[in-house]
Design a protein around this nucleic acid. Structure first.
Lengths: 209, 209, 209, 209
DNA sequence: TATGAATGAGCCTTCATTCAT
DNA sequence: CATGAATGAAGGCTCATTCAT
């Protein structure tokens, strides 16, 4: 980062534009490099492949994202069993500004990672993030009385939830808007899932009687 | 449809397989046609381009989808002002089996449209469907006391909602599962959005006092 | 073979020329095809790769060569133990015209296989042919009283022998010359190896006394 | 040699490794130089081209080889006419240790010259060495009663002979093994060629009678 | 109707070499 | 002495499309 030459910066900037517009796969290295004012030979002096170029653009942000997300999930999971629901505020809401800061500070990279990465190793990163965090949270849910929910349905909802967060992250929102939107979305999913769980239990109660 | 020759049918079947596996852009016309047992020349006798081939595969289903969705939305919007909430059952839940039938009957096409259409005019169809229906429903929301919600937040949630429906539609679920999942998801979003709206009003009330 | 189009023939002829002059690896597909009067696209309509082009040129001859060589070796090995030396004439000399016919009939292909195939699966074919036949003949040698010879030295000589045959095969000799040269070379190696074996035994005899 | 800088030595060592592994043509100058810990610019300060680098590696050894070979051939040729056969021991066998010393002392270079030099001016050096020495020895043969042999056949055999010596030289043999193998091979070719010559004369005698 | 021959632009990548600093 | 930026030609290969037959 510190020692990128002007050439590299020109190439990176051009690459960012092209990847953003066409996605990794469809973007032409030829045009990226020409657009930056250089030849392909020059490019390969800096990067070993097209994919490495993409990587140079987003690797740091990708790691940062995983870290921030993991930290939040871990923070919540760190509370003693049974006390997690009541700590939701500290565990999650209180961390949103931090997350928003990260997002606003790396928005372009996040867009690349989350929606232009087909053909790279970042493809499906969101899905795996969801899968990962979902599995870590699942046992918690059981204790919260949400055990009645079909795990597949839960996964569906988590996908929607994370997908919406991703949409917020890649949107054009200011920092405070990011916080507000994420808080709202959290409220919706939390209340919604709770309502579904209660309805289920009610239905089961009726079936039993 | 009525007058598709055996050749066309072979090509369409092969195309469906290839588009499904690689997506529109990455699928090779060469291989599609060869796999169907014909040559490229034959293909261009029936279709003017690769995109037109994709179109032939999904146009009908795409229209049908828009129609079904529009019909449900319109049905709901058709009730007199103020009575819509209480008619949610008839307007929406009651129509789910119908939607599920459509989905199960056109699942492969829907998969093509919703997740393999990059590079075609169907790319982003879901988004426009959301946009479309959201706009028609928006005025209704005002009357339901949800006016406090930021329209953009609402759009975000609708995107999540429709996105989840799409995921269900393109999943491997049986007809009844489709209905059940969609009902559950509807419950979650409905209750969730309501909770958010109330929270807002509560917050505003507090602010006032 | 039977149904090669004029285009293919032009490409094959051009390829033969280029491979012959530069070897497989250094020959440029670009130039081969251009020299034949076509574009690269046309080429790939007929062959899947550069290597397949080489293969089309020499596969048949390569198989034929292996068969002829194998047949001769097998013929010799087919005689009862101990009688092989006296059958050398029938087993080997008598088959030379047959071998020469094959060589003269496939000379260009043999040149390709034996000395222009670096980078293809034919690379090292001669060496493996030597290894193969050497192993089958080795036990025979023991019975002929040549057991005193270091196997590695024997292998060295077999390499020289087969290498010379290959040189004759790829030379500019007429059929009868091929036969005559091969017969001469056979005489040289046979007598030479016998002389070496006897010298060894003599030396061992002296050591013992 | 005397004034090679540490940089040159590093490059030469790296080059030797790469040429040995991939051959001159396929070795990448880029990697050679990088492997040596320098840049291409540094390289071109010392050598004008890739080929010149190869040359720097093997020129001395190549000359030494030609000299040793020439000296041996000349030594033999130096005896009075008619006495050469009886001096074979002093002229050739006695010089083998000297040759073996040279080989063992320059084995890596010889490998480069004899089997990794495709694309350089050393390509075909063995052949020209053979040609050279063969021509000087040919008149001798006439006097030895080998005049009946077709000169081309003789050339073929000399190629085989020298080729085998080269194989020994580039093998993994210890000094004494080199001497022993070369002596054995010499015995084989000498006895073999003599046998062929006699057979010829016998055949001619029969024809005459 | 269908073939199949052919195009030509494009793909990503590698290479030996030059040259200002 | 050595760097490192840059070139430009070439490498093998894929693609959607055209068109005479």
């Amino acid at each position: 980062m510190a020692d990128t030459t002007a050439t590299q910066q020109a190439i990176l900037a051009s690459a960012r534009r092209h990847f953003m517009e066409h996605g990794f796969k469809s973007a032409s290295l030829n045009r990226i490099v020409a657009d930056a004012g250089f030849t392909k030979g020059a490019f390969y002096g800096y990067y070993a492949s097209k994919e490495e170029l993409f990587d140079a653009l987003v690797a740091q942000t990708s790691q940062g994202l995983a870290q921030v997300m993991g930290s939040i999930t871990a923070g919540w999971a760190g509370y003693p069993e049974g006390e997690q629901p009541e700590h939701l505020d500290e565990a999650f809401f209180a961390r949103l500004p931090e997350l928003a800061d990260f997002i606003v500070g790396h928005r372009d990279d996040l867009r690349l990672i989350l929606s232009r990465s087909e053909g790279t190793r970042y493809e499906g990163l969101l899905e795996s993030l969801v899968e990962n965090n979902t599995q870590r949270i699942e046992p918690m849910l059981a204790r919260m009385g949400l055990s009645g929910m079909d795990p597949d349905t839960y996964r569906l909802l988590m996908n929607a939830y994370y997908g919406t967060l991703a949409r917020i992250a890649t949107g054009d929102y200011a920092r405070d808007q990011v916080v507000a939107k994420m808080r709202d979305v959290q409220v919706v999913f939390q209340a919604g899932i709770l309502a579904l769980a209660q309805r289920r239990q009610g239905a089961q109660g009726q079936e039993r009687s």
